[in-house]
């Protein structure tokens, strides 16, 4: 895949990254591994006390998936920036799919528009990466 990657053509789509459905175990592991121990993501009692029906995934878990999408396409040392807006909650059991598309190439830097979408079509995250061209 790397050999075929083209970094400099507007409209090029990155190969999509389809993740596993997010289980409660995924959330427990990510809470520990990421250091984000906010109980709203792992403790049903706390989620309910805040008026929610259930816990929901950390936004940073989806952004970590998205960074995998980018760095398996372009080496990490080319990544100049990564940004995201968390626009919808990711429920437990949802399956995120990460996508990206080159929207601009200027001054040796490619801009990639990024998104994370669930199977029901909900867009949970929109973002941008900038990648230096070799």
């Amino acid at each position: 895949m790397t050999a075929e990657a083209t970094y400099d053509t507007v409209g090029t789509e990155l190969p999509a990254l389809v993740c596993e459905p997010i289980s409660r175990t995924t959330l427990a592991l990510f809470a520990g591994a990421s250091g984000d121990h906010n109980p709203i993501h792992v403790d049903l009692d706390v989620a309910r006390s805040a008026g929610l029906e259930d816990v929901f995934a950390h936004g940073m878990l989806s952004l970590a998936y998205l960074s995998r999408l980018v760095t398996r396409w372009a080496p990490q040392d080319r990544l100049r920036s990564l940004s995201a807006r968390f626009v919808a909650i990711t429920p437990v059991h949802a399956r995120p799919t990460c996508t990206g598309r080159i929207t601009a190439v200027e001054n040796g830097v490619a801009t990639v528009a990024l998104a994370v979408t669930l199977d029901d079509g909900t867009v949970t995250l929109t973002g941008t990466a900038t990648i230096g061209l070799a």
């Binding site: 906010n38 706390v46 805040a50 936004g59 920036s81 940004s83 968390f86």
Partner: peptide, 13 residues
């Protein structure tokens, strides 16, 4: 903290 959501995040390298 129960009322806090992560709205945006960016990184520059």
């Amino acid at each position: 903290l129960r009322r806090v959501l992560h709205g945006e995040q960016w990184f520059e390298y």
